[in-house]
Every structure is written in C-alpha cells, then in structure tokens.
Nucleic acid binder design. Structure first.
Lengths: 262, 262
DNA sequence: AAGTGGTCTAGACCACTAT
DNA sequence: TAGTGGTCTAGACCACTTT
C-alpha cells in the first residue's frame, strides 16, 4: 500500500505543503507555533495580519482564520478585534489537569479490576438527604467498591444512589464495568451532568486498612455528584486514593508535538 | 427526494435570529446543546447531518460546520467521518480542573500579598542539580515566599532559580508582583513552557508553622518546573497550601449557561 | 452508489481600533 | 480613514463508511 508520509519534516522554508495529508490550516498553525517556540515571536508580539498571512502562504482567509482560531482556542495567542492578534505569555494559571490523563487506572481495564465490597439499601441520613435532595430516611443504595490495579488496591469508592425500583440504574451501576464507563465514556449512561471536586485529605483508619496503607498517609479525594436529565441528583460519592499513586500533572506553554484535531 | 432517516425527527423548536448579536454558529450550537440537555438528543444519538442542518436552519455549510466543531471541541459530541456525528455520554474521565478557576488567590491581587521570607544564593545539592540540569555545587537562588490572602497565610512557596548574572531574571522574580504574573498572565516572562504536578501531602513541622495550621493537616502541593526558550530549566519549586482552603472543582456534561468564545 | 464529515476557495459585509 | 479581526455565503472536491 501507499507509504505514510513522515510529517515531522522541519519546515525551513516555512511554506504550506499542498501534497501533505496534514490540512493547510494545521500546517499554518504549526508554523506559527514554531515561530513562538523558537523565540521568533515573543510574548506580546503581534502576529502578521490575516491578510498578510493569506498572501504569504497563499491560502484563503477562511484557512488563515481557522489556523488562528486554533491557536486562540489552545491559549497560545489572543485576538482583539480591531487591534490584532498577540502572543500570550506562559501563565501558570492556564494549567488544566485532565483527570483521564492522570488516572491511568481507567485507561486499560485489563490491569484494573473492580470489586464490590458492599451494596445495601439504607435510609438517608441528614448529610446524604441534603446532597441527593431527599428526605431523611428515604431509601438509598449504598455501595462500597475497591479498585485494584495490578493486584494492588488503588482506589476506594463509596457511593449513594437514589433508590428507584422503576429505574434499572441500580442493576447497571452494580456491574463492575459500569464504573469504568464513567471514565472512558464507552458505555451509555442516563447521566446528564456532574460536579466533581478534588481535595487533599488524610486517610482514616478504615481507609488506610482497605488501601493497605501505613498511617499517616496523605490521600486524594474525588467527590462526585451526578444529575439525570431532569436535573435531579441521582448519585453522590467519592473516590479515595493514596497520594503516592495519584499525581495530576499538566504542561503549560508551547509544546510542538501536540496532537491536532482527530 | 431522499427519504428521512428513521430516528431523526428533531422538532424545530427554535430558529436562528438574524438580528441577534449572537452569531449564527453560536445560536445553532446552543440549539443543539439544548436538545441534548432536554433529552431530545440522548447519548449515542446521531445528530442531523450537516446538509439537513443547513436546510432546516437556512445557514451555509460553513456555519453549520463551525457550530458542530464547537460542540466537538467542547466534548459534547463526537464526529466520525463517513458515519455521522453522535452525542457523547457524560464521562468522568473528561473532567478538567482549571488551576486559575480554583485559586481565587491570584485573581484579585488586592486581597493577596506576597512576602519574601528569604532569598539567598546557595550551591545546588544533588536533587536540585538534577532538576535544573546543573552540576552539584553550582550556584542557585533559593527563594521562600509566603502568600497571604485577607491577612491569613494561604500558600507557602519555595523555589530554586538558576543563578545567571547576565540575565536579569533574578531581580524580576524577586518582585512580589512577579508571582502573580505567572497566574494571570498580564506580565511578561521569558518562560517558554512549564510542567506542573499536583499532589496531596501532609504538612511537616516547618510548613505547618508558617501556614499557622494545626497538625496533622492535609495539604496540596503544586510542583512546577519552568523552561526558557532554549528548553533549559530555569526554575524549580513548589507551592504548598492547606487542603481546607484549596479545592479544585469542575463540571462535566451539559451546562447551558456556558460562555461562548470571548 | 449514496451519504457522511473534512477541507478549502474567493470573495463579502460588519464592528472595532488606531491614526 | 485605513487596518484589523469576526462572521458568513454558496458552492467545490475529497476521504471515508455503509448499503
């Protein structure tokens, strides 16, 4: 079959290769980003105007616009109507931590198994009732799960679900694979949206025992609250993992090996 | 002419308002998102094809494409060439934590002041030398800072900078405002990129004393490593804050009050 | 073969900013 | 007034998937 072109050819001429499989707008965006990475364009500098870029690289205005929009969306430049487009300085505040990238536990389900430690129906206490917008004493499903990665305990999960015999969510959520679906998105859910909070904590006796951790041990807690399509909360719970096995990382600034689109 | 696909009976509840200040592509994206939020389009459903959207809302293909691209970029739908565009299920793995949104400390500099506790030149130990790609004993600038928000200690920062008398970075970094620039990006930096790691930890004696925290106290640590335009590391350090005043939060799924563009 | 999304053209008009 | 970015048109060709 046809060979695949090596797209990582340094564009010393800095022009658009019409025969490349890489779209013109993406090539142009990379050329501009390379200029920033090499210091030709410094923070605060103004990019060439769109008309200039059209002429310089022989592409249509829409293509230039798309390339510039890409850089705007990625946070590398800022466009101001009537003034111009300018290179943004590297700012730590723009750091974004991707949960999926950090939790490799969920990326390959072969290494991680989920075990349900407990699942029973209990009445909501004051705290649960407030979170799930129930009355104290209303029935909820309380589930405790332990995730093991390569045989070692990695995450301890506790969750309260609204008990509704008309809705088959309880059965579905109990399945060990249901949890992974939340992370890789391959499954179907009836969730509409959710809120997730991350905070640092210290393992208590029970958590340390289940996670087989010495005490005192720092830990990360992901609290989550999910809503259905009627905007009613249906699930509240939290994951707890040892700090030494959970690290969120990110990069800010210019990275030339960044993936474009799909 | 062509027959209507089976499942695509999306009723037209809204149309594009040509006199609105909101661009057509944004209006269309909102209409589609509303369909998802209200359950008319469920996870896994296929969106109407671009040609159908063109005809139904009387806009050009480029406008439809831009609206769909917006939804793709925001993670609400996934477009597959040759197949169609489909509504994505809510997945916890797509959660992204924005450092800027979570650290209100840096958003208004009036409430937060930076005090330099210590700044001196010291030789690099083995650990520092490895991080900054120096030789053990090379001179570095060690800086300790304490950030106070509304008078209360909020973040404790320690940083090692490469000592270079030819570069005025030391003077600039020492300024109390230099730190904020890293977060709000209003200032100029000579940084090209950086890596940031977040992890949970437990305050040690010194940290607890400086942050006026009881022990044991869970804490969040942001380790950062910054590079200049030659891809050489120039700064390594970490912020430590009490867990009870640092919480990262995010939302996943459909949010109708989301801001569009700038 | 038909339908889908992916890219691109060569202009156009508008709103805004600076001079 | 000139230059800038923001939006939009009405098509076109291509690659891909499904039937």
């Amino acid at each position: 079959m046809a060979q695949r072109p090596k797209s990582q050819v340094l564009k010393q001429t800095a022009s658009i290769d019409r025969n490349s499989f890489e779209p013109a707008y993406s090539q142009l965006a990379n050329i501009l980003r390379e200029s920033m990475a090499s210091g030709i364009l410094l923070p605060g500098d103004q990019l060439p105007s769109e008309a200039q870029l059209c002429e310089r690289y022989d592409v249509s205005p829409m293509t230039v616009r798309r390339a510039v929009n890409l850089l705007v969306d990625q946070g590398f430049v800022i466009a101001e109507q009537g003034r111009g487009t300018f290179v943004r300085p590297v700012a730590m505040g723009s750091a974004t931590f991707q949960l999926r990238d950090s939790l490799s536990l969920f990326n390959d389900s072969k290494r991680t198994i989920v075990r349900v430690l407990e699942a029973r129906i209990i009445g909501a206490d004051e705290r649960v009732a407030r979170k799930l917008e129930l009355c104290v004493g209303d029935r909820t499903v309380y589930i405790r799960r332990l995730l093991r990665t390569d045989g070692l305990p990695s995450l301890y999960h506790r969750e309260y679900l609204i008990y509704d015999p008309l809705r088959p969510i309880v059965e579905a959520e109990l399945e060990v694979t249901a949890l992974q679906r939340l992370f890789n998105g391959t499954g179907e859910t009836i969730l509409k949206r959710g809120e997730i909070n991350l905070e640092a904590t210290i393992l208590n006796d029970e958590e340390a025992k289940i996670l087989e951790a010495p005490r005192p041990m720092a830990a990360v807690c992901f609290e989550h609250l999910f809503y259905d399509f009627d905007d009613k909360p249906i699930s509240w719970g939290w994951f707890i993992g040892r700090a030494d096995s959970l690290r969120l990382s990110t990069q800010v600034g210019l990275l030339m090996d960044r993936k474009e689109h799909k």
